[in-house]
Write a protein that binds this DNA or RNA. Structure first.
Lengths: 205, 205
DNA sequence: ACCACCCGAACGAACGTTCGAACGAAAGCC
DNA sequence: GGCTTTCGTTCGAACGTTCGTTCGGGTGGT
């Protein structure tokens, strides 16, 4: 469950079919939620039989597990890349928010599933995802702490980071990629400046 | 479905038993989610038989409907009360956030259900809840617009309000009433000042 | 005798998962 | 090169469970 089995022999194309399956599953989970999503529907959208799914995956929970694990892992790797060579704390924060928001734009379904289904997994699978999620949170928390290296209390910076995640995670509830008049990059910039300088200061720049 | 039936004759205590049922349902929905929550478990926690539930309510969806409708209605009414006599825009916003956060403290389960299960209802029930939710959002949006009566663009104020709701709705994900070192009123104050003045300005006051 | 209230038992549907058989390409053997 | 065996892959059909809801009847107050 905790690692993709690579010991067994596979036909070429096995991995890409599994990825296609995960993609379909993410779309269905995002649309109707994990519990209401049936394996029959995921099978239909992947154009595989119901039983065929279980050749690529052991259970429904494993589908969710891989979607979540892979998403947080990508967020973390993207963050590292986007921070490289950036030293100004404000620019680092903006890079972090932009990384998050862009990743949302490209993987809307997956991020929605991560945000909404945080407490669905149990046991080892939950722990493994939780560790990735925690690493990601702490990486952003570190950036927030750098903003006020001297005077910021730890609790304040932790709360501020939690609220920052509130902003950038909540927007899957209202953002509609096709209909919105704001681009994702503009949105990231607005959220960064809202977090850094607040709503009141925004008109004075 | 859309209005509690008050025409039928009821034994005294009927209403309070129904409220007790809604309270149990909210607790179960909050713990395991609407889909995983079974009527059998709700029945057990309410100390009523499974069939007995259907004497007070027509369906499982109706349980969710009343929890959500009543919660948004209470939020809206509490907001009106807390704004009475307050005219300074900053204080009005703080009152709004405090109302929201306090309401959370007193009705944790219900707010969690409202935040997580926004898209679960369908048809008329969804529309009715949606209208309350929209009214509440617009009431807060009006307060945000008052903060910058001259220069604020409508889109900006709308985005800012959406992000404010992100902060104050997301915190059900991490806040643990029993374990936290921050009181709900302190949290409301921090969130208000974060939204108004940003994270950077907070150390300079 | 009526009626609000309560419940054990069952119904039909939907679910995640498994079983056993089929197909086709590569591997082993003469 | 032909023939057989192996095994990854696919699927229709079914299994066992759980679910929301209903049915028919009971109980106690008025």
């Amino acid at each position: 469950m905790l690692a993709l089995d690579t010991t067994q022999k596979r036909t070429p194309g096995f991995d890409s079919k599994r990825l296609h399956l995960l993609k379909s599953a993410a779309r269905v989970f995002a649309e109707v939620g994990f519990d209401k999503a049936s394996m029959r529907r995921i099978a239909a959208e992947t154009e595989v039989s119901l039983a065929g799914i279980y050749h690529y995956v052991d259970s429904k929970e494993e589908l969710l597990y891989w979607i979540q694990y892979h998403t947080f892992d990508s967020l973390l790797k993207g963050l590292s890349n986007n921070l490289e060579g950036v030293s100004d704390p404000r620019l680092r924060l903006e890079a972090a928010v932009r990384n998050h928001v862009r990743h949302f734009g490209e993987n809307m379904h997956e991020l929605k599933v991560c945000a909404r289904e945080v407490e669905t997994l149990e046991g080892e699978a939950y722990d493994a995802v939780h560790e990735r999620r925690r690493s990601y949170f702490e990486a952003v928390h570190r950036i927030v702490m750098e903003l006020q290296p001297d005077q910021g209390a730890f609790l304040d910076s932790w709360l501020a980071t939690a609220n920052l995640f509130g902003m950038i995670n909540w927007f899957y509830q209202w953002y509609d990629a096709g209909r919105s008049r704001v681009s994702l990059d503009d949105l990231a910039a607005q959220q960064t400046s809202l977090f850094l300088d607040g709503y009141i200061a925004r008109g004075n720049e």
